[in-house]
Design a protein around this nucleic acid. Structure first.
Lengths: 148, 148
DNA sequence: ATGCTTATCTTGCAAGATGCAATTATTAAC
DNA sequence: GTTAATAATTGCATCTTGCAAGATAAGCAT
């Protein structure tokens, strides 16, 4: 069991570096955390602040200010929910969507470069395994998460 | 290919949460970044500042200050290398090693809880897959890394 | 309705993290 | 020996973080 932690750790770090390197190489000036926020907003429909903060494991106050920055940068739109005006619902602006897509392309390009080293069987096995383990990790502790 | 990014992303996040939750539940007061630094120092023999900073993808100036904090907390030891006195070699103090081991136990316990949900075949497949993909990701871009 | 409790989000503040530019100390190159 | 390169640190300005304390809205009891 002892090298499982190491595997996750290294994998984690390498994926982070893959993203950072991607941004740098393509001259995109965005932080990892902002990229993640755009990604999550894009993935879910009408997420609230609290939902996304929980999902990303960020303190709500920090998240609130990150969103303010993204709104100022015209990447994210925030509007009060009709049914419950305490809640703010997030969505991407056109520019935000465009940025999210651009980031997606970059990361996928880099991921493809990784998978080129592997044959189809390995590829399928890996994706299957990632799905299983990700699901299992979500089931152990799922506070108030949106299904991811 | 498009949900591979998502898989990595979610897996990444869930592993981060697993670590944070572990620390919180066990009442360990340590940040993720400090935990990672201890882990890496423990894993490598006589790593230099620059090596670890590169490995973790942290700016060397930030890393230098993180190490100062850890040295003050009596978790890390820093000594000049004999052959090259510009270089500082890092190691764990007794307390640092103890902390690293404690963290390791916590994370492994939580990981075991995840793997309980899976059968032996799935477990083996997943570990095998993680190894392959981690290796592949390391080979695509390996700047000046120590072998991980 | 009125008050009490809970939920969502925002700000004040103080502490910590970040990264560029400049500096120190050491080694390498010529 | 002078100059260049490398490893690490410090100054400084900026950003991030999270607790505590608000502001506002919704739910719920009486």
């Amino acid at each position: 069991m002892e090298d499982v932690r190491n595997l996750f750790h290294v994998l984690n770090r390498r994926f982070s570096l893959l993203q950072k390197n991607g941004f740098r190489e393509e001259g995109i000036d965005i932080s990892l955390i902002h990229s993640h926020i755009l990604f999550e907003i894009d993935k879910h429909t009408q997420p609230s602040m609290q939902q996304l903060a929980d999902l990303l494991g960020i303190d709500i106050t920090t998240f609130s200010r990150q969103i303010q920055t993204l709104v100022k940068a015209n990447l994210v739109k925030k509007r009060a929910k009709q049914e419950d005006k305490r809640v703010y619902v997030l969505s991407l602006t056109q520019k935000g969507k465009q940025t999210a897509d651009q980031i997606d392309t970059i990361i996928n390009t880099h991921l493809e470069r990784v998978f080129l080293k592997l044959n189809d069987f390995e590829k399928d096995t890996i994706i299957h395994s990632l799905k299983i383990v990700t699901k299992a990790m979500g089931e152990v502790r799922n506070g108030n998460m949106i299904k991811g």
